[in-house]
Computed example of a mutant assay.
Amino acid sequence: MNAPAPSGPAYIALALQSLCAAVNDCARPEEARERVMASIARMSREIAGSKAFIGDGVRLVVLPEYALTGFPMGETAAQWRAKAAFDPDGREYAALAELAVKHQVYLGGNAYETDPHFPDLYFQACFVLSPAGDTVLRYRRLISMYAPSPYDVLDAYLDAYGEDALFPVADTEIGRLAAIASEEILYPEIARCHAMKGAEVFIHPTSEAASPLATPKNIAKQARAIENIAYVVSANTGGMTGTPIPQNSADRGSKIVDPRGLVIAEAASGPSMCAYGEVDIALARRLRHRAGMPNLLARTPAALYAREYARAQLHPANSLLADGEVSVPGREFYKARQQRVIDTLAERGII
């Protein structure tokens, strides 16, 4: 007797390509916070307008990477924390939760945030807020070139939050959701670790180079969808103001990729609601239950890979943690750390 076909919800997801009004040029933290609140109000209007145009069925909205603040450009960790890092229980997240409630959507996004366990640091976090205003997903970016991550204080982070906090998956009424932060789309392991915990939809807040060419990140979005038989909802910034970088450098290409790697919607340049399309969770589940060569998730020999990774020991954990004390390095630390890894690769004959 054949098993019943897997079922699941179908709905519209919107990768909202919104302008990032960065706070780098704000002279005072209070000025930066007011700009953040103004951006939240603008995005509320954009969501309302988008829903009115698209019609019924919009249940997931994803905002771009650090869409409310931009990224640090010369600020020290203390300066950026004061200017742009949100308290998880503070007014910025409360205002975003109000958006999710007001528009009755699951709202995904990305922000820098503080942590009471690591008061001198900040982390870059992806989040999903439910239509009830609850935080159903919080994922801290694990791989970052010039910012602290949980991996840099891994032992202390695990003591505070446990293993499940590293690759969280939210089981919601619109499917099992996970997050990938921007450049992490280039690392297959990030998506795969989430998929092995059941993730069916990856939200991907990003802020990346605009190009009509097949960029590494755009290639990776399709690859991650195919490898994991999952949807990728990728929201890019629609330009960035408040920094010396030319405004449209991080722009265009917000998209939705289905579990077969097909791009079902994509936005052109500028603030846009054009990257919207149907997410059919039943499709992902049917493909995952189907035996055959395309089912790459079921064919993954994870234990085999784990052996080789365990032996590699390339990029060290806990590099900001010594004898239980957390250090707060300057920007130069991160590049020097990478150079040490490159030197190790060369010494081993790997490169």
Rank of each mutant, 00 (worst) to 15 (best):
2 N>C: 07
4 P>A: 08
7 S>I: 05
7 S>L: 05
8 G>M: 03
10 A>F: 00
15 A>L: 08
17 Q>W: 06
20 C>Q: 07
21 A>K: 09
23 V>K: 01
26 C>K: 10
28 R>M: 14
28 R>D: 15
35 R>P: 00
39 S>W: 00
41 A>L: 10
43 M>N: 13
44 S>R: 10
45 R>I: 03
46 E>C: 06
47 I>D: 04
48 A>H: 07
49 G>W: 00
52 A>M: 09
55 G>S: 10
55 G>E: 10
55 G>C: 09
55 G>D: 11
56 D>A: 14
57 G>Y: 08
58 V>R: 01
60 L>Q: 03
60 L>I: 07
60 L>K: 02
65 E>M: 06
68 L>F: 12
76 T>K: 09
77 A>E: 12
86 F>N: 02
88 P>N: 06
92 E>N: 09
93 Y>I: 14
94 A>M: 10
98 E>P: 02
98 E>D: 15
101 V>C: 12
111 A>M: 04
114 T>H: 01
117 H>K: 11
117 H>W: 11
121 L>R: 01
125 A>G: 05
125 A>S: 14
127 F>Y: 15
127 F>C: 05
134 D>Y: 05
141 R>K: 15
144 S>T: 10
145 M>S: 13
146 Y>M: 13
157 Y>R: 00
160 A>K: 02
164 D>F: 02
165 A>V: 04
167 F>N: 08
170 A>P: 07
172 T>G: 11
181 A>N: 11
182 S>F: 06
183 E>T: 12
184 E>L: 10
189 E>C: 01
190 I>W: 03
198 G>P: 04
204 H>C: 09
206 T>E: 05
206 T>Q: 09
210 A>H: 11
216 P>W: 11
217 K>E: 11
218 N>W: 03
221 K>Y: 13
221 K>T: 10
222 Q>V: 13
223 A>V: 13
228 N>G: 03
229 I>F: 00
229 I>K: 00
236 N>R: 06
239 G>P: 03
240 M>V: 14
245 I>R: 07
245 I>C: 06
247 Q>D: 12
248 N>V: 06
252 R>W: 06
258 D>H: 08
261 G>L: 09
263 V>E: 13
265 A>M: 07
268 A>T: 06
271 P>A: 15
275 A>S: 08
276 Y>L: 01
277 G>I: 04
290 R>I: 03
290 R>E: 14
293 M>T: 03
296 L>T: 08
298 A>F: 07
300 T>G: 02
300 T>P: 00
301 P>Y: 05
306 A>V: 04
306 A>S: 12
310 A>N: 12
311 R>Q: 15
313 Q>N: 15
313 Q>T: 14
322 A>S: 12
325 E>K: 10
326 V>Y: 00
329 P>F: 01
330 G>N: 05
334 Y>K: 02
335 K>Y: 10
337 R>Q: 15
339 Q>R: 13
342 I>D: 14
342 I>C: 08
343 D>Y: 05
346 A>R: 15
